[in-house]
Simulated assay, not measured.
Amino acid sequence: MTTEEDKLMAKRGKRYEEISQKVDKTKIYTPEEALEVVFDTKSAKFVETVELAVKLGVDPRHADQQVRGTVILPHGTGKNVRVLAITSGENIQKALDAGADYAGDDEYIAKIGQGWFEFDIVIATPDMMPKLGRLGRVLGTKGLMPNPKSGTVTTDIAKTVEEFKKGKVAFKVDKLGSIHLPLGKVNFTKEAIEENFKTALKQIINLKPAAAKGQYLRTVAISLTMGPGIKIDPLLAGTFVTK
């Protein structure tokens, strides 16, 4: 289903051009400057997401240069994440009590096989992975297949559900060596976005593969859903997160 956000993204036009003038495309901003400017690029009629984009000095074609993990944003993402827990027995009620929107076993596996996707993330217990494996092609193409490296395969279903509902985000480097993460909503305070930014980028830095050579953070930028990218000096960004 096309969302209001999707429709607006297709109609950038004049408003986008006006907002773009507030960002100097020839300038590489300090993290502090970028976190100030991003709030001046509000343009949409909905509450936009502040997004982080990082280009890494890795070759994702090699298994030893994959960057994949999770991060718990201190202030969450501002989005109501719909969690589906695939589990069995008493874990079903534990997942629901922890905040899962849906929890069950064969019933939900069958629904997914029939084209049901009214959820944003799937969390599974190890005993259910053989059954979910049959849906690997369906869930994998949408980036929804549970995986231990993304923290979505767990023996502690209640804790994991609670973490993702509160703002835990899974990420993975794409084929171009980039990672994209939400940092919250534009109606967050600047302090909250800054703290989320530091936490997310620090985790990405901590996951630097030993096989990665040269400069790890190649480019760093933040933007709003409908706004232009604001380039940040990657070297300054690296030191900023340790302050």
Results as ranks from 00 to 15, higher is better:
residue 197 F to V: 07
residue 56 L to K: 06
residue 217 L to N: 10
residue 104 G to Q: 07
residue 5 E to M: 09
residue 1 M to Y: 13
residue 33 E to Q: 13
residue 195 E to I: 07
residue 166 K to Y: 01
residue 38 V to Q: 00
residue 31 P to E: 11
residue 103 A to H: 05
residue 99 G to T: 09
residue 142 K to G: 11
residue 150 S to T: 15
residue 14 K to D: 12
residue 198 K to I: 04
residue 85 A to T: 01
residue 72 I to D: 11
residue 66 Q to W: 11
residue 6 D to W: 08
residue 68 R to I: 15
residue 87 T to S: 01
residue 221 A to W: 12
residue 158 A to M: 06
residue 189 T to M: 04
residue 239 T to L: 10
residue 220 V to T: 13
residue 41 T to I: 02
residue 159 K to T: 15
residue 131 K to Y: 02
residue 11 K to S: 08
residue 32 E to S: 14
residue 12 R to N: 10
residue 15 R to G: 07
residue 31 P to I: 00
residue 25 K to Q: 15
residue 71 V to L: 12
residue 17 E to Q: 10
residue 112 I to H: 03
residue 44 A to T: 11
residue 183 L to H: 04
residue 140 G to C: 06
residue 147 N to G: 02
residue 69 G to P: 04
residue 79 K to M: 09
residue 28 I to W: 03
residue 137 R to G: 10
residue 209 P to A: 10
residue 151 G to C: 08
residue 240 F to P: 08
residue 72 I to Q: 14
residue 184 G to R: 05
residue 84 L to Y: 04
residue 55 K to P: 03
residue 92 I to T: 05
residue 83 V to W: 02
residue 7 K to Y: 13
residue 54 V to F: 09
residue 36 E to M: 09
residue 7 K to A: 14
residue 143 G to Q: 14
residue 242 T to Y: 12
residue 28 I to S: 08
residue 213 K to W: 06
residue 83 V to L: 06
residue 9 M to G: 10
residue 96 L to Q: 02
residue 44 A to E: 11
residue 155 T to V: 11
residue 195 E to R: 14
residue 183 L to P: 05
residue 71 V to K: 12
residue 1 M to L: 09
residue 144 L to R: 06
residue 138 V to R: 15
residue 109 I to F: 04
residue 117 F to L: 06
residue 50 V to W: 01
residue 229 G to C: 06
residue 18 E to K: 13
residue 30 T to M: 03
residue 128 M to P: 02
residue 225 T to D: 10
residue 181 L to F: 08
residue 85 A to Q: 05
residue 146 P to M: 07
residue 32 E to V: 15
residue 4 E to M: 05
residue 4 E to I: 13
residue 165 K to Q: 07
residue 114 Q to E: 12
residue 137 R to F: 05
residue 4 E to C: 03
residue 28 I to Y: 03
residue 75 H to Q: 08
residue 101 D to R: 14
residue 157 I to D: 00
residue 126 P to M: 07
residue 148 P to S: 12
residue 231 K to D: 12
residue 114 Q to W: 05
residue 29 Y to M: 01
residue 115 G to F: 11
residue 211 A to G: 02
residue 10 A to H: 09
residue 132 L to S: 04
residue 68 R to T: 15
residue 27 K to I: 01
residue 184 G to Q: 04
residue 143 G to L: 14
residue 40 D to R: 10
